[in-house]
Simulated scan of single mutants.
Amino acid sequence: MKALVGFACLALLSACAHDLELMKMEEQVNGYGSAIRWNLFKKAAGYLDPPPVPAPDWKALAETKVTAYSPQYREVLPSGKVMTQTVEIRYIPPGAVVEKSLIDQQRWRFDEDGNRWVLESGLPEFNQTLARTQRTP
């Protein structure tokens, strides 16, 4: 009987640890999404691992106005340590009056050393869209 109780307790603790990691994921992913939504790009960069090299054009990002950040799809891989997410981001580029959108494919992983979820895929690719916008006559 003691073995059965011990096994049940171990299973419960294992489930709680899994739920705690998922709660951490939600906290990190939502914090990052809020930073992007409120144009806090330097704060959003704090979720990245590795840090962006070269550094983003902070001035162009500061002039970019995000109007919507909408997660479309999320999948946690079987290991429970990697999550992919697709997000639609609507924004107004610097000097423009027309709203644009992009699809951001994100890859998150759980960093055991830091005990937190980090974004591996980098900041949204506003710069590619901005470069196309700036070249348009």
Results as ranks from 00 to 15, higher is better:
18 H>V: 15
44 A>V: 02
33 G>W: 06
10 L>S: 09
56 P>S: 02
32 Y>S: 00
45 A>N: 05
33 G>M: 08
92 I>P: 01
57 D>L: 02
56 P>G: 02
100 K>P: 07
52 P>E: 07
134 Q>Y: 11
117 W>D: 06
28 Q>L: 03
85 Q>A: 03
101 S>T: 10
65 K>E: 01
56 P>H: 02
124 P>Y: 01
67 T>S: 01
111 D>P: 01
28 Q>C: 10
57 D>V: 03
54 P>E: 00
27 E>S: 15
20 L>C: 12
45 A>C: 04
27 E>G: 12
26 E>C: 09
22 L>I: 11
132 R>T: 05
40 L>S: 11
97 V>E: 15
64 T>P: 02
25 M>D: 08
19 D>Q: 12
76 V>W: 10
79 S>K: 02
15 A>N: 06
89 I>D: 02
131 A>Q: 07
39 N>V: 00
103 I>C: 08
14 S>I: 06
45 A>T: 01
30 N>L: 13
92 I>K: 07
86 T>Y: 00
124 P>R: 00
63 E>H: 09
15 A>W: 07
108 W>Q: 02
29 V>D: 03
74 R>V: 07
57 D>R: 04
32 Y>V: 00
56 P>T: 02
118 V>T: 06
127 N>L: 10
97 V>M: 15
93 P>V: 01
119 L>D: 01
133 T>C: 08
87 V>E: 00
86 T>L: 11
28 Q>M: 12
132 R>K: 12
1 M>A: 14
65 K>A: 00
135 R>E: 15
89 I>H: 05
106 Q>R: 09
65 K>H: 11
1 M>I: 06
68 A>E: 11
55 A>R: 04
44 A>Q: 03
61 L>P: 00
95 G>R: 05
2 K>I: 12
48 L>Y: 03
125 E>A: 06
82 V>F: 08
106 Q>E: 10
113 D>F: 12
72 Q>C: 09
42 K>M: 08
5 V>K: 07
73 Y>M: 11
9 C>E: 13
115 N>W: 02
71 P>M: 04
40 L>K: 13
108 W>M: 05
26 E>K: 10
37 R>S: 10
62 A>C: 04
76 V>T: 15
89 I>C: 02
124 P>N: 00
98 V>S: 11
110 F>T: 04
98 V>K: 12
78 P>A: 10
19 D>W: 13
90 R>N: 05
15 A>R: 05
25 M>T: 06
40 L>F: 08
30 N>R: 14
98 V>R: 13
11 A>D: 02
9 C>H: 11
7 F>V: 15
72 Q>D: 07
105 Q>Y: 06
134 Q>R: 13
52 P>K: 01
34 S>H: 14
72 Q>L: 12
101 S>N: 13
13 L>I: 11
98 V>D: 10
113 D>E: 15
61 L>F: 09
55 A>Q: 09
41 F>R: 04
